[in-house]
Amino acid sequence: MSSEIITPAQNEAVQMQPTKTPGKWAQLWLDIKKNKVSYYFLAPFLILFTVFTIVPIIMSVVLSFSYYNIIETPRFIGFSNYKLLFVDDDIFLKAVGITLKFAIITGPIGYIMAFLLAWLISQIPQKFRFFYTLCYYVPSITSAVAMSVVWLYLFAGDRKGLLNHWLIQLGIINEPYLFLQNVDSIVPVIIIVSLWMSMGVGFLAFLAGLQNVPTDLYEAGSIDGVKYRWQELWYITIPCVKPQLLFGAVMQVVGSLTVFDVSMRLVGFPSPLYAGHTIMAHLFDYAFIRFEMGYASAIAVLLFALMLGLNRLIFKVLGRD
């Protein structure tokens, strides 16, 4: 029986031969088996996320290509719902314009306000922070009924309305102005109220991130020539809280595009001449009043795509590091 002698050159050539790498799904399965204990802890969240988020999204996409009124079996109709949305539904196109106008104004302004107020609160002594945090955060968690009572009294269209009373007393107007019935003032009123309620979860995330910035960085910055608070904010604070900035931006986009409750409580549903009609209001109308679930699913899919696109843009801007 003969044995072959492998030379060093042949041994090196064998070692240099490329090994077959497993595919993406095979690699995932190997990682799961290797870290199975970690996946056991993740399993409850993954199951709930799949059942209550992934599955509804898939069902909405499927139903958007059908006619479904809850009573009858869904009937496939192709792209008819999407064609109706963009070609024949003038109210939807108006709702898109109102929603985008609302998001463009309240999104950046609310985002900057939340961060600046969180930064200012982080500069005051620790014992006073809870009071100021509570004052700014309470409007975002107050019930819609309480919110509507306060703002309906402020913008009431008669002489008993607080704003009308002040304007008449100052001689600016001679008769009450219908803030909640005039189509020119409905969107500005909704924007004002939404900004008042914009200090939500993103505001708390900013505050938590600002309080965890290491003080050593500020000391090092002062040695390197940082003299003013605004310089500290730009060169030290903002780079340290980028994860919180990313989270706050995503939450602000979602909140701006899904505004509905404020509009319904203030100007009614539907609003006068659909002046305060948003995409979420249109979705609510077809889903829970007309029960046209196929058409409502198409609206939901488009809203989801709009959110997804804006969030991807935010990730490219704030998530690069």
Rank of each mutant, 00 (worst) to 15 (best):
S2E: 13
S2D: 11
S2I: 11
P8E: 11
V14D: 13
K24M: 14
L30Q: 15
V37W: 11
V37Q: 10
A43G: 13
S64T: 04
N69K: 13
I71S: 15
R75N: 11
G78I: 07
N81G: 09
N81F: 04
V96S: 04
I98C: 00
T106G: 09
I109Q: 08
M113L: 15
L117S: 14
S122A: 15
P125C: 01
Q126F: 12
Q126I: 12
A146K: 07
S148A: 14
V149A: 10
W151R: 04
W151G: 02
L152M: 12
Y153L: 08
Q169H: 12
L170D: 10
F179W: 15
F179D: 07
N182A: 05
V187W: 01
P188K: 01
P188D: 06
V189Q: 01
I190F: 05
V193H: 07
V193D: 03
W196N: 05
L207W: 00
A208W: 05
Q211L: 14
T215H: 13
P243Q: 06
Q244R: 06
L245T: 12
L246C: 04
Q252P: 02
V254Q: 11
F260G: 09
P272V: 09
L273E: 13
A275P: 10
A281I: 09
Y286F: 15
F291K: 02
E292D: 14
Y295Q: 00
L313G: 15
L318C: 07
